[in-house]
């Protein structure tokens, strides 16, 4: 894929994307519009968007919450919750002392503010590279996930702002329920080495709901 080779950073699912346009984010390429989709992509249709190159980082440690506040990020009140930062960043709390900050998917070029920890007992995490980031859009999120995940992700059990750490298609994943343009989306962060495998498993599960790969234009 010539687009992806222009940049040093490559998405974990780069070979799976046949894009008509790519956007340079963070020294890598994010697909804007998928070649295959003739019609204009709206959040109505089921879609899978690769955000693996988008900026993200994390902190862990007894002073991580303090550091997050110092960087002006919200601190979710409990593990497995997701808050939204001032610039639309997704702020996840994955454990008693672990926090991840993900770019605002609609404003990827405005990378979230990263400050290296200055306090002790606060360590920077590796989620930019250890995890891929795929985002599912459309009206059939819970039904699609029900084909590959044994946790009830219907909106009554898994409302907006919640995070679920579980097994998806037999790999470990972090699932975030957030909103874009007031519509529910699921972001899935999982082992980057299994990204291609998960991409294929998700698209297969979405076939029943007329799902396909999509680009950023589906959410902007």
């Amino acid at each position: 894929m010539s687009e992806s080779r222009q940049f040093q950073r490559r998405s974990f699912v780069a070979r799976k994307l046949e894009g008509s346009e790519f956007l340079n984010i963070n020294d890598g390429a994010v697909m804007v519009k998928a070649l295959a989709n003739a019609s204009d992509n709206q959040v109505q249709q089921s879609g899978l968007i690769d955000l693996s190159v988008a900026q993200r980082f994390g902190f862990r440690g007894l002073n991580a919450a303090q550091h997050m506040q110092a960087c002006d990020y919200p601190v979710p009140s409990k593990p497995n919750l997701c808050d939204v930062g001032r610039n639309g960043e997704l702020v996840l709390r994955l454990g008693e002392t672990e926090y991840w900050v993900l770019s605002n998917p609609q404003e990827l070029e405005q990378t979230p503010n990263y400050q290296a920890p200055v306090l002790d007992k606060c360590y920077s995490l590796f989620c930019q590279n250890s995890h891929s980031w795929l985002m599912m859009v459309g009206p059939s999120l819970a039904e699609t996930m029900a084909k590959i995940c044994g946790v009830d992700l219907s909106s009554s059990q898994f409302p907006v702002g919640h995070v679920c750490q579980t097994s998806v298609a037999r790999i470990n994943a972090v699932i975030v329920h957030h909103e874009i343009n007031n519509k529910s989306v699921f972001s899935i962060l999982s082992d980057s080495a299994s990204a291609v495998y998960l991409w294929e498993a998700l698209l297969d599960a979405m076939t029943e709901f007329n799902g396909c790969a999509m680009g950023l234009s589906a959410i902007t």
């Binding site: 593990p79 497995n80 454990g95 008693e96 044994g150 946790v151 679920c164 750490q165 579980t166 097994s167």
Partner: peptide
């Protein structure tokens, strides 16, 4: 204790 009720296969 942290994630709630789950299938035993997750443990």
């Amino acid at each position: 204790p942290m994630n709630g009720p789950r299938n035993i296969s997750e443990f």
